[in-house]
Design a protein around this nucleic acid. Structure first.
Length: 257
DNA sequence: ATGTCCTCTCTTAGAGGA
């Protein structure tokens, strides 16, 4: 069982890249972020044509998340995080696939710091932590997979000193991630590769990918019921080098049955 | 400040977001 996550940065503009990657790597379950498309403009048929079912939570211009599966039933549990009825951003979708609860998330970027966007990020993170705690209380296999917009440690940033006042690396943001992990979640990449420099994002600016000036901000968090099944994980880094690529690369985990 | 690339609109240029 292979589960992947990919911030596509516009699903329609990126459709050829997405389809090529899906056909090349054939993940069983996929979390997508930054669809940047309204509900009715999701490319459902193009995905069905290559064997992927989908549920999605769209929004015009911004955000948007989806869960895909290859020949597996997707049972939607929720769209949106609980805790704020006035939050109109499409940043969370959750489903059961093959007995695994899959939460696909796109945490707010939060820049610039300080300011209302940063406050929104911290509030959203707090709501995520509350929801994550409630998921653990069901004692089910759960993966919370997506773009967390946080580099957890200095190892996850090419030049940490340049990022100390960025919303993705502010101490408050890292503390929120640390609090989430302390509930009992396992960061799949760090569990398998505790000391390696592994990035999932490279800016479009200044040849960041060519210089490997990257960030690790896309994470797979496994519940205690799922973590023992982890056998491998990685980043499909080469996809970031394709023409018309997203600024993120896909991240994946593989689980034993 | 800048770099790049997405989406949308008071659309073919500029704004907003990342």
């Amino acid at each position: 069982m292979k589960i992947a996550s990919y911030n596509v940065n516009g699903i329609n503009g990126r459709l050829p890249v997405l389809l090529r990657w899906l056909q090349e790597t054939q993940p069983d379950i996929v979390c997508l972020q930054e669809l940047k498309a309204p509900q009715e403009k999701f490319p459902q048929q193009a995905l069905l044509d290559i064997g992927y079912n989908a549920i999605w939570h769209g929004q015009k211009s911004w955000n948007g998340v989806a869960i895909l599966s290859r020949n597996l039933e997707i049972k939607e549990l929720r769209k949106g995080l609980p805790g704020d009825e006035n939050d109109a951003h499409s940043r969370y979708i959750e489903a059961v696939v093959e007995g695994i609860v899959v939460g696909c998330l796109y945490l707010p970027n939060g820049n610039p710091y300080p300011g209302p966007k940063f406050e929104y990020k911290l509030q959203w993170f707090e709501r995520l932590n509350i929801h994550a705690q409630s998921l653990l209380e069901h004692n089910l296999p759960v993966v919370l997979f997506g773009d967390y917009n946080v580099m957890p440690t200095e190892l996850d940033v090419y030049k940490p000193e340049r990022w100390v006042n960025d919303a993705l690396f502010r101490v408050e943001t890292r503390e929120a991630y640390k609090k989430l992990l302390a509930q009992g979640w396992t960061d799949a990449i760090r569990k398998l590769y505790p000391d390696d420099v592994i990035y999932t994002f490279w800016d479009y600016f200044r040849n960041a990918y060519g210089r490997n000036a990257g960030l690790r901000i896309d994470h797979a968090l496994l519940s205690p019921q799922l973590a023992p099944r982890l056998v491998n994980a990685g980043v499909d880094k080469h996809v970031r080098g394709w023409e018309k690529s997203s600024d993120h690369a896909p991240v994946w985990i593989s689980l034993k049955e």
